[in-house]
Write a protein that binds this DNA or RNA. Sequence first.
DNA 1: TTTTAACACGAAAACGTTTTCGTGATTTTC
DNA 2: GAAAATCACGAAAACGTTTTCGTGTTAAAA
Lengths: 348, 348
Amino acid sequence: MKRKITLKQIAKELDVSISTVSKALRNSPEISDDTKQKVQAFAKLYNYRPNNIALSLKNRKTNTIGIIIPEIVHHFFSKVIRGVETVANNRGYNVIIGLSNESFSKEVINMEMLANGSIDGFILSISKETQQLQDFHHFNETMSQGMPIVMFDRVVSEINCDKVIVDDLNGAKNAVEKLIQNGCESIALITTKDYVSVGKLRTQGYLEALQEHKMVPKAQLILKIDDTFDFESHLDMLENEIEQLFTSNKDIDGVFAVNELYALSAMKVARKLGLDIPNDVQVIGFTDGVLSKHATPGLTTVSQHAEQMGERAADLLIDKLEKEYDTEEESFQTIVIATDLVERESTK
Amino acid sequence: MKRKITLKQIAKELDVSISTVSKALRNSPEISDDTKQKVQAFAKLYNYRPNNIALSLKNRKTNTIGIIIPEIVHHFFSKVIRGVETVANNRGYNVIIGLSNESFSKEVINMEMLANGSIDGFILSISKETQQLQDFHHFNETMSQGMPIVMFDRVVSEINCDKVIVDDLNGAKNAVEKLIQNGCESIALITTKDYVSVGKLRTQGYLEALQEHKMVPKAQLILKIDDTFDFESHLDMLENEIEQLFTSNKDIDGVFAVNELYALSAMKVARKLGLDIPNDVQVIGFTDGVLSKHATPGLTTVSQHAEQMGERAADLLIDKLEKEYDTEEESFQTIVIATDLVERESTK
DNA sequence: TTTTAACACGAAAACGTTTTCGTGATTTTC
DNA sequence: GAAAATCACGAAAACGTTTTCGTGTTAAAA
């Protein structure tokens, strides 16, 4: 169990100074060819690699970016990570992850841990609890220490930083318009409580689509789910709520749901009530995840291009990290990723 | 944009030495109460936190563990990461991820990058390509440098290290026995080519179950899929193969598939051929992912307890990292995680 | 009053790099 | 043959910590 070899050891072994070894390995013209060859051969033999930590300390740059997300067992977030990872690795960066588990305090603690030198910048999506509490001091503190932040998907207007967001409003609007064009006249919306920014925007898209087609939104067609519950383990509660929606509104012929799970549950409930999809009810969801694709019937859904979001976020962050100090005035941009409607069998 | 404050700056500001500041903050008895209070108050005011990189360099310990997995957009691996993350954070470690994308060279490069000081040890699952190539030198090299490795799920017997594996054989066996008990007499197997270690073991479990019940395995009932294709984007090819299996074996009344996707595809094809699930054909899959739960009918499946695997792996690694040097002789253990059969509507 | 002990603090090394600057030896130039 | 230039290398600082070992000052013991 030999330790990794260091410059010092090579220097000692070859009876030269540490500086000489370092320079020889970096092919400095200061060093004679003789010495270079000797050193390089030795280094290769012992498989020398510079110690990253020492480099980070010296350069005050870790070449690592930190991702903070609310949850990793989630198709959307995994895809974003993958996008970040691709770009980061191509540009010579590592990725370190922290999970907030939708908790404010875990988000804060995780950020504090990573901010103490471990990383050069953050890519993050805000936890639900943070969105509720509206406490954003940790973001401001991090940024005031010169550590850039890029937010994605769940962003917050109070913080001035680079952002990558989905065009939730238009994504939802297009989906609902599709239902209208397909002949739906009584379109239900299954969404979340308003503090979830994306839920709010998608709700707004639903309303705008109706208005533009002179349709009057009815309150009893809008179901706002309290998603602080973990519905993965309480599916029945979710389904009960949806069943109530259907039974008290027999005329529903279209459903727009703000995520996959709600959409799938709606399909399940509809089938249970003897309704055929898509002939009696057409359904569109949000997020083109694995559930939509493999559902039966396949779920028509709004694709967010999660991987692309990760890529853009990573590029944004690394650009900022590597930008020279020439322009001192900070400028932040918000990238809006357009959505696509992926049509499957749950619509006509 | 002020930089993070350092000991040196505090020392200068308070006109004491760096050593004094350091000791004061760690409550050393060497320092007078007066000075301690002064220093601690100042540090708190400026929100001082020790620089992790400097600590890592000094202690030759990063308190970070590296995970290398083939793919992150995958329910099983995400769950493992979550398990690792939970334990790691509780025990004061960070988690850094690398994706091999099922590629040998990316696995090697990723490991080399992280091994140069960034992390204290690895938790990994081997890429398919590595399994095919049977080239494991990078694992040996890493370990010979004193960096411990814990492998999970896709392990390899040639390497001596801690391992956490699923009891694939018995998981599969139990599943097939369930089908037999439920009255199935012609049970098909949908599996992968043999170089995927877990596929091989699950196939073996299938065979053993049949043998123990005096049933003769028939070659034409076993479908070995070449999973170097990305079936997420070529679902139709997969479904064609399965359809052939059904049409040339009209008597199939049970299907055991070694993953969720194969199982779902089998259900889809069966339904298309007019077969009722579970009355005409019963289906069991492997991996209790999101697909099984939300499929219609719900898929009976073998649960691997991915999160628990991650937790055990993390504990194993950190135990090794923190073990005193007392017992010099290395000892490695293999933890076998038992599976559960989660019964849903795809079986009687 | 002298010796010893306790106290409170600082200097310096170490972790592994890179880089600036200096310097002795050789070579070139006039 | 003296001055200048080139060459090849080493010493040391710096990044931010922690920790060991001194050391000067004061208080207690003789």
